[in-house]
Amino acid sequence: MRNSHDELLEMLGEDADYLLEHKCRTIAREQLSAPGWDFVDRVYSESNRNNRVLVNLERLFSHGRLKDTGYLSILPVDQGVEHSGGASFAKNPAYFDPENIVKLAMEGGCNAVASTFGVLGSVARRYAHRIPFVVKINHNELLTYPNTFDQIMFGTIDQACDMGAAAVGATIYFGSQNSDRQIVEVARAFSYAHEVGMATILWCYMRNSAFKTGGVDYHVAADLTGQANHLGVTLQADIIKQKLPEVNGGYKALNTGDSSYGKLDERIYSELATDHPIDLTRYQVANCYMGRAGLINSGGASGKNDFADAVRTAVINKRAGGMGLISGRKAFQRPMSEGVKILNYIQDVYLNDKITLA
């Protein structure tokens, strides 16, 4: 392991004890299918996934610095479509070139690189056999005026398979006006992806302007994101990507006055979660069939304290029972050497035996 435990403690600062000494008394760790070197054999092999899917899942878990640990570190770079190429790559124009995206994932010791049909297809013959590809099959194209915030298909499962991809990824904006259509499209695509032998990763994002109310953004509420995860695993996603929860009580906030939204049980808040970030994330893991589908949390936007923020997110995910991090902008919106460094810091959390399941 490259970075010492003391160095990681220093990066956590005053939150070190708060995060590392926390004991989860909501959903016990013994109830989880926890990540481990044998996860494919122990968990996925009990499912209806065919042998080719299991082989590709093993490809993901057997690559990079985290190989054979049961944890994943994935570099996602689909922001050129989702956030526009200029907004994403102006800080570091080298990443307009798809080869540099793949090189960053390889130099950074990632398990896989996730990107668009165009990015991965443009370098597939050179790199598809050298690092697992995750092809993102749908996007919010962002040029429609006014912005519609809809996910539409950009290619086919057969294209991803022919490219040599180990997995496909997709986003559903749960709660959005077009979520029903997205659910149907992704369900069909994931079913066929499994049929031809690829693993599936679902970005389970909440999206509705009404989810911001009373000065609080409930897009990152544990109860709403937890249910989004539960819908994701219902679609048989093998791995769920979700934002780290920051609050709770989304159902309560949206069930006020004349409005009625979803269904809730008070035990969601009193017994299944507290306001501690590890407990909130444990609730997300529980909604992934108690960890039978792995939870990977997103790294978030680049900011002032990227290295410390990345380590903190990794600690929360690991101690909650998650399967790893999928972090992009923090890595590619800086020189490659620094991007590699931040990816390695994330991986060091999962390689550190002293950071355990809460």
Rank of each mutant, 00 (worst) to 15 (best):
S327W: 03
E82V: 01
M336L: 14
V168C: 11
H5R: 15
L60P: 02
L231M: 11
D6E: 15
F190W: 06
E141W: 02
V77A: 09
Y192F: 12
D348Y: 04
A228D: 02
E246C: 03
L143S: 14
S191E: 05
L9E: 05
E271Y: 08
G108D: 04
E14I: 07
L351D: 01
L272W: 09
N208F: 04
N50Q: 01
I296Q: 02
E10Q: 15
G232N: 02
A308D: 00
V233D: 04
R207W: 09
G108S: 06
I296D: 02
V184W: 05
R282I: 03
E30F: 10
E46F: 09
V43I: 08
E14R: 09
Y71V: 05
L254D: 00
N287S: 09
G339P: 12
V184E: 05
T256I: 10
N51Y: 08
G197E: 02
G232T: 02
R292S: 14
K252L: 13
G70N: 08
S260V: 15
D238N: 14
T69M: 05
Q333P: 10
E10Y: 09
L264G: 09
T200Q: 10
F149G: 07
G299R: 05
P98Y: 04
G232P: 00
G108M: 03
A331V: 04
Y251V: 07
M153W: 01
T234I: 06
N317W: 00
K243W: 11
M1K: 07
R65K: 12
I137G: 04
F117G: 01
A170G: 04
Q159K: 08
F149T: 12
V168S: 03
A221I: 02
V81D: 00
Y127V: 04
G262D: 00
S88T: 15
C110L: 10
T200W: 06
H276A: 09
P76E: 01
D306H: 00
S260G: 13
F89Y: 15
A273R: 12
E10T: 12
L235M: 13
A253W: 06
A94W: 00
I316F: 10
R49K: 13
G155H: 03
V81Q: 06
G299K: 03
A253E: 11
D17R: 15
H194N: 08
D150Q: 09
Q284N: 15
D17T: 10
